[in-house]
Amino acid sequence: MPVRRGHVAPQNTFLDTIIRKFEGQSRKFIIANARVENCAVIYCNDGFCELCGYSRAEVMQRPCTCDFLHGPRTQRRAAAQIAQALLGAEERKVEIAFYRKDGSCFLCLVDVVPVKNEDGAVIMFILNFEVVMEKDMVGSPAHDTNHRGPPTSWLAPGRAKTFRLKLPALLALTARESSVRSGGAGGAGAPGAVVVDVDLTPAAPSSESLALDEVTAMDNHVAGLGPAEERRALVGPGSPPRSAPGQLPSPRAHSLNPDASGSSCSLARTRSRESCASVRRASSADDIEAMRAGVLPPPPRHASTGAMHPLRSGLLNSTSDSDLVRYRTISKIPQITLNFVDLKGDPFLASPTSDREIIAPKIKERTHNVTEKVTQVLSLGADVLPEYKLQAPRIHRWTILHYSPFKAVWDWLILLLVIYTAVFTPYSAAFLLKETEEGPPATECGYACQPLAVVDLIVDIMFIVDILINFRTTYVNANEEVVSHPGRIAVHYFKGWFLIDMVAAIPFDLLI
């Protein structure tokens, strides 16, 4: 008679799926529990143990900040960024110097990925580790590398530091407007667009060049630039800015003055950032001319202004700041037409079709709590990747769950009947059967004279019903998954307890 339990259901295979997918890609990662103190490590794979030199037993239950890997060259700011990422709910990448158990130093890129439950609360953290440099290539500990984003994938490793954006290309926007319009339909740009040429040739750093990471940081200074100062900065030398009595002219307006920039070969870094931020506020060169004239017309309804409409929906549905990093990277690809469009465009503009998908598509409701890094690593669709929660398995109709209350009560009843059979069957065979043979035949009273025979008949009927119930009862397979398919249940029961239950259900007393 089957006594099969499996009270692990309803099970959740999400954690096993993450481990299996990460292991298949030869990654070095740990999984931490966000619900406990210090976000203790609950799993670390073999790749991480080989990377740091510690065994799994030495890593388990330690804080996922990996303070046991810190050393003299470990930056405090990087460690603080990892700790801050564990307090938030967004994906974050941090470069930090770690030390192995043998004392060797290596520069590592740590990717902190939160995993949320159905309520939107962070319950786990996945920390992925990628070695960037070994100890002989690690720089000085005073050099802070965590304020910069990861290198873009479309640049060669040897040319990542030679990417320079020439400031004269930004200063000569109005001069290039006529050349853009003359391109017409034969050019790649839309009317009114501004073409910015980027020099990728390796050259020595000069005062006129600005690194790509500095251009990325310009967006942080746009908020500090007032509207009046932006307007004066875009007017140009024809209309000098008016300053109040006793007030000095704005240095932001002076930063885009061609006369002032041409007199000296070098520009201050602050002026460069502010000038680029001011130019980015204009949607095209037409807006710059309109600002000089004193009238700013409404933005025209053409394809170039609607190019950012799908980007707005993608940004609203993005799951991490990696989408913004990807957008900034692609927006700086050289030799393309940049349409400086305000994100607050007309909502009635139709979304044009684009061959290049900048932001990841909208994630469906079932995966809105899973970050983009987890979705990318697992390579699963929205119909396959579940949320991290207890999910009731989908069972067929008329199927009994093996952990249901009805099955528990039924098993206790069958257990009592088995005990009765084990006690009274030998007793009936030894004593009652002998008395029946010696006594007179009682054929007239039937079952009324033999109450134990009636009980034995009921017990046999219950055993037959138990066999039928076992054909529709779920079970737990070797992978700790609840199986509810009727065919698989029948095959599993035939290979197991079916023969024993059938022999126990045969009414031998009635056959004798």
Score class of each variant (00 low, 15 high):
K93W: 12
M218C: 15
P245C: 07
L155Q: 05
C44L: 01
A217Q: 14
S278N: 08
A307F: 13
R328I: 04
S178R: 15
P2S: 06
L378Q: 04
D342F: 01
L343H: 15
A260L: 12
R176D: 06
H70W: 15
I96L: 04
N33Y: 03
E208K: 01
A156V: 14
R27F: 09
S207A: 15
I19M: 06
V377L: 14
P249R: 08
R77N: 10
L349V: 11
A244L: 04
G24S: 13
A290Q: 04
P386H: 03
L316G: 11
F68Y: 04
L170G: 15
V295I: 14
E90G: 08
L107I: 15
I288Y: 15
L225F: 04
S278Y: 09
A382T: 01
A203V: 06
F29E: 01
S275C: 12
I18K: 01
F29S: 01
D199L: 01
G158F: 13
L173G: 15
A293N: 15
H7W: 11
S182C: 12
H254G: 08
D323A: 12
A175M: 04
G139I: 06
S179W: 01
S284N: 07
T337L: 12
A175N: 15
A190L: 15
P310D: 15
G24A: 08
I31D: 01
A188L: 06
R366K: 07
E118R: 06
E118Q: 10
S104N: 13
A253R: 11
L173S: 14
I330E: 08
A185R: 06
G189D: 05
S182L: 05
N146E: 10
V325D: 14
A34P: 15
P310L: 08
H221E: 12
S182T: 10
S153W: 07
F340W: 15
F163Q: 15
C265E: 07
K373G: 04
E50F: 05
K28T: 12
S179N: 09
A156P: 11
P352S: 10
T353C: 10
E91D: 12
K28M: 13
I358D: 15
S243F: 05
D46M: 05
D119V: 09
P352T: 03
N369T: 12
P361T: 12
F125I: 05
L200F: 06
I363V: 11
R273I: 12
T74E: 01
